[in-house]
Write a protein that binds this DNA or RNA. Structure first.
Length: 419
DNA sequence: TCTGGGGTCCTAGGACCC
DNA sequence: TCTGGGGTCCTAGGACCC
């Protein structure tokens, strides 16, 4: 059996865990740069604040409805996520971290008459008690069905108490007839539109289609999903998925038309990618740089480009990655465009201490100790005290984060004092 | 004035090989 | 008049997820 454990309104719940004043009140969390709404408490949903709402358009709405609006606080959410994960691992060792707020768990070799419903309730109870984060737990014989069970637990908290198990053919059929096709995991906007044209309104309708038809009209993803929904375990638990790429992309506070500002941003993003690489002990073979204009400004000239560079040896040195990334940015930069967003992506990842050496070119051996020193100094003194010379040393650039909560669990100065 | 960021997987088509 | 067949690798783009 598989469980899907999903944290309810995760970011909003994290904020509430440390600020009890927010309990029972409408709360909304904003994206980077305080752009748009990316997480809402049930109360905020109830008064009608939509997901993705650009906050500048909804400011007065939030005020009249008493919605508490906060900037996103990723150090806090990341830390809370790993706490939830470690509690879940007490219930079964086989856990797949699916996203920051969701994990799959598998119960292998459990007895046939095992009380999964009770176990689900215990998981929920312990996570709530130890972290303050409410969750919903769905349990079923396949991953796709556990997703459906999870939606049922979430939708009917009173009846289910937050946990629901699909463990019979009747329950499976009932659940599939209940869930709308567009709410099925893996069926997005495009596919649900096409399926609805075929008269497919629920997950049940989808499972009634012929395998051949699905194979012909869609990809193998949908075929696998269909089997999983039919109760035939097809999607497997993926416990240690290796990351395939690492990205740092950001919108700017203003638009830039000059290459100098963009070079600075690219250098910073490249350093961030390199740091993430070193943190997970990887190196990259490929660096991709993207630039784009403001897609919301329909009247100004649009330019969205990216280019990639293949390196002759894998690296995680900030210096090398930043240099190539800046070169790449200069090669695609177009004069006269107002750029609003840029990014650096590294891919072609290999383990740092186990890759094929190149016969002719390899990384300057001085870089590794230099990066080690930079990382340890930044870890010790924080706030990126050590940067590359082509980064923004004056700190003129900043992300808008006007309503940021304290880093309750990751900064010693922000820990709550109990009086 | 102001509209996010980070991922995965699959497919079709082109370029190339023998 | 008539012009094969079987592969691999790479990339761009599309679809999806949270």
């Amino acid at each position: 059996m598989f469980a899907l454990v999903d944290c309810n309104n995760f970011y909003a719940s994290c904020e509430r865990a440390f600020n009890p004043d927010l309990q029972g009140k409408p709360v909304a969390i904003l994206s980077n740069n305080d752009g748009c709404v990316i997480s809402r408490s049930d109360e905020a949903k109830a008064v009608g604040l939509p997901m993705g709402a650009p906050i500048f358009k909804w400011e007065s709405f939030c005020k009249t409805n008493g919605i508490h609006v906060l900037s996103s606080n990723y150090p806090l959410y990341g830390d809370m996520s790993s706490r939830v994960m470690s509690i879940l691992k007490q219930f079964t060792p086989d856990v797949e971290l699916y996203s920051i707020d969701e994990s799959f768990a598998e119960f292998r070799d459990f007895k046939d008459d095992f009380d999964y419903n009770d176990y689900g309730l215990q998981i929920r109870k312990r996570i709530l008690k130890w972290t303050g984060i409410p969750t919903s737990v769905g349990i079923a014989p396949t991953k796709a069905l556990s997703k459906v069970a999870n939606k049922i637990a979430r939708k009917f908290p009173k009846e289910t108490k937050g946990a629901y198990v699909i463990d019979s053919e009747e329950k499976r059929t009932k659940a599939l007839k209940w869930i709308k096709i567009e709410d099925v995991w893996g069926i997005g906007r495009r596919l649900s539109k096409r399926l609805k044209q075929k008269g497919c309104k629920t997950a049940y309708d989808f499972t009634q289609l012929s395998n051949d038809w699905v194979k012909q009209n869609f990809s193998v993803i949908e075929s696998r999903l269909k089997r999983d929904l039919e109760g035939i375990p097809t999607l497997v638990l993926d416990e240690h998925r290796d990351r395939k790429m690492i990205a740092t992309t950001r919108s700017f506070e203003y638009t830039y038309s000059d290459i100098d500002n963009i070079k600075e941003r690219i250098s910073t993003f490249a350093s961030s990618c390199a740091e993430k690489l070193r943190k997970q002990n990887s190196s990259c073979y490929v660096v991709i740089v993207t630039l784009s204009s403001d897609r919301h400004k329909k009247d100004s000239e649009q330019h969205r480009v990216s280019t990639s560079i293949n390196l002759s040896y894998p690296t995680n040195s900030s210096l090398i990655i930043a240099n190539y990334a800046i070169g790449a940015a200069m090669s695609i930069f177009k004069e006269g465009i107002k750029y609003k967003r840029a990014g650096v992506i590294v891919t072609g990842l290999v383990p740092t201490d186990n890759y094929q050496l190149n016969m002719f070119h390899n990384e300057d051996p001085k870089h590794k100790p230099l990066m080690d020193s930079i990382d340890s100094l930044n870890a010790k003194y924080g706030d990126y005290k050590i940067k590359l010379g082509n980064q923004d040393l004056e700190r003129t650039w900043k992300m808008r984060q006007e309503r940021l909560s304290p880093r309750y669990t990751t900064n010693i100065n922000d820990i709550i004092v109990v009086r």
